[in-house]
């Protein structure tokens, strides 16, 4: 298989911020990302779970985007403007992708 190196950016952010973050990604020209639900967790602001919640306020979502290495800086700048003061995690890992022309 012909594999190509890429960067996988994973952002865990408060659910109420989801539309703002995806909007910032769209504006930055990052058109490929996936929004995933997350069940629960624990952090500096305490334990949380989606179970039984009727408001998005206490929930988090994960947004995953895979981009070419040269585009990761622009993506992170767009992300940082939104997540800077909010609860969450941003991490970048190396990955290999098939069909590099799609990224």
């Amino acid at each position: 298989m012909n594999m190509t190196r890429a960067k996988r950016v994973e952002i865990i952010i408060e659910a109420p911020m989801e539309s703002r973050l995806t909007g910032a990604l769209d504006t930055a020209g990052v058109t490929g990302y996936t929004v995933l639900p997350v069940l629960g967790g624990n952090g500096r602001n305490g334990r949380w779970t989606r179970e039984g919640q009727v408001s998005s306020a206490g929930g988090m979502v994960a947004i995953v985007s895979v981009v070419r290495a040269e585009r990761v800086e622009g993506l992170l700048e767009a992300v940082f403007a939104v997540v800077e003061r909010h609860i969450g995690i941003v991490n970048v890992t190396d990955c290999d992708v098939l069909r590099a022309e799609r990224f």
């Binding site: 408060e14 659910a15 109420p16 911020m17 703002r20 009727v54 408001s55 998005s56 306020a57 206490g58 909010h86």
Partner: peptide, 9 residues
């Protein structure tokens, strides 16, 4: 419901 979500933003 409404206010916690608004406060997070």
């Amino acid at each position: 419901i409404a206010v916690p979500a608004a406060m997070r933003v």
